[in-house]
């Protein structure tokens, strides 16, 4: 992908985000923050690439370990974020009739 196509994806996604987030009910704003937190850990993709790269030389070695540490951090966020969101959402119940 060239820079312009990436930029297009980004700008369009910002618009999608704008409309989708305004449609979120205020009662669910805390779960919204928890779940956005979890999905922003998609940065794990970069961490995995770094951790999986063949480590040649000291810079390569350092890069690999930085990647592995980032994998740990992002995993905490992914699992923790989705789990805590699920826990919160399970509490929202309608009036029992």
């Amino acid at each position: 992908m060239d820079f312009i196509s990436i930029l297009s994806v980004f700008v369009l996604a910002c618009f999608v985000g704008y409309y989708v987030v305004w449609s979120v009910t205020p009662a669910l704003h805390t779960p919204l923050m928890a779940v956005t937190n979890a999905i922003s850990s998609v940065i794990i993709v970069g961490a995995l690439i770094a951790a999986a790269a063949g480590s040649v030389g000291s810079a390569g070695e350092a890069s690999k370990w930085l990647g592995l540490l980032a994998v740990v951090l992002a995993s905490i966020n992914i699992f923790g974020g989705f789990a805590v969101t699920a826990r919160m959402l399970a509490m929202y119940k309608k009036k029992a009739r």
Partner: peptide, 9 residues
Amino acid sequence: ITGALVGSS
């Protein structure tokens, strides 16, 4: 896409 979503959120 995620970054843009979370950023706007």
